[in-house]
Amino acid sequence: MNDSQAASPPAPSTDDTYRFDDLRALFINCTLKPSPQQSHTQGLIDKSRAIMDGQGVATEVIRAVDHDLAPGVYPDMTQHGFTTDAWPELYEQVLAADILVVAGPIWLGDNSSVTKQVIERLYSCSGLLNSRGQYAYYGRVGGCLITGNEDGVKHCAMNILYSLQHLGYAIPPQADAGWIGPAGPGPSYLDAGSGGPENDFTNRNTAFMAWNLMHMAAMLKRAGGFPAHGNQRSEWDAGCRLDAANPDYR
């Protein structure tokens, strides 16, 4: 299955209260393997994506390693010595999504180098503002999926979720899920006999993550975004301290 194909979705809810046809979700797969190589991370993405598809969310997957992303922490690294940089185009896809899920493998107990690069490039645009003077990622929600055959799911999730909230994403409850199998070298998620796709703990957390992302994204979107009071960089820069007066350091 390639990144443009989702797993067969479960039967969608018949309650229109839980239809999310106005939402878009973007999964960024931070595997080290270029397409069309099999990605175990993609297998877990497909489970989460199928739940969202079943409720009307428009979903998309990007395999980051397939794109020529320059390293760096500026929005367009071609302005800083690199000849090519695919990030400005991918950033437009990020902004078009109400839900962002960063997904990747564990290596040496930590996030992959590609995951770290994606976080850096998200960070590169964190100073940009929306039309209300807030940071550009406000009004969106974030989550993460982790796969591997060694310990480190919670460590990797903490790093990603902290990074996303620091950049402006809202993080709902249970916003992460992962699978590692037995600690130590062993089968990966999609390997025959791994038990990964059937694992009840992983499937439960993946389902809760998908639903909580949809719930929070819908609440934010239908409320017109995150309230623009006390968090507008444009107002702060203009001298408005919003009840947080500058201390007198005399």
Score class of each variant (00 low, 15 high):
222 R>L: 06
199 N>R: 03
159 N>K: 15
26 L>S: 07
122 L>P: 02
245 A>Y: 11
125 C>R: 06
128 L>H: 04
121 R>W: 04
153 V>S: 06
223 A>N: 13
35 S>R: 08
131 S>R: 14
248 D>F: 06
152 G>M: 06
239 G>S: 02
241 R>A: 09
165 Q>H: 12
4 S>M: 06
241 R>D: 13
158 M>S: 15
32 L>H: 12
89 E>T: 13
228 A>K: 10
80 H>G: 01
66 D>I: 00
96 A>K: 12
168 G>V: 05
11 A>S: 14
175 A>H: 11
226 F>R: 12
32 L>T: 15
181 G>E: 01
175 A>M: 12
246 N>F: 12
48 S>I: 10
56 G>M: 06
48 S>F: 02
206 T>H: 00
231 N>S: 11
158 M>T: 15
237 D>N: 14
32 L>E: 13
127 G>H: 15
185 P>G: 10
164 L>S: 06
118 V>Y: 09
224 G>N: 06
42 Q>F: 08
155 H>G: 11
133 G>A: 08
193 G>K: 08
190 L>F: 03
31 T>K: 09
29 N>T: 02
66 D>M: 04
124 S>D: 04
121 R>Q: 03
84 T>M: 03
185 P>V: 10
116 K>M: 12
241 R>H: 12
44 L>K: 00
38 Q>S: 10
213 L>E: 00
44 L>C: 00
150 E>Q: 15
4 S>Y: 08
39 S>T: 06
124 S>V: 04
107 W>F: 15
99 I>H: 10
234 S>G: 02
39 S>R: 08
62 I>V: 11
41 T>N: 08
165 Q>G: 13
15 D>N: 15
55 Q>V: 03
61 V>N: 05
75 P>N: 08
240 C>E: 15
219 M>R: 10
82 F>D: 09
101 V>L: 01
157 A>V: 05
20 F>C: 07
215 H>S: 11
103 A>R: 02
188 S>R: 13
105 P>K: 10
168 G>W: 07
215 H>P: 00
203 N>C: 11
92 E>I: 01
25 A>G: 04
147 T>D: 07
169 Y>S: 07
175 A>K: 09
226 F>M: 09
8 S>F: 07
76 D>K: 03
211 W>D: 12
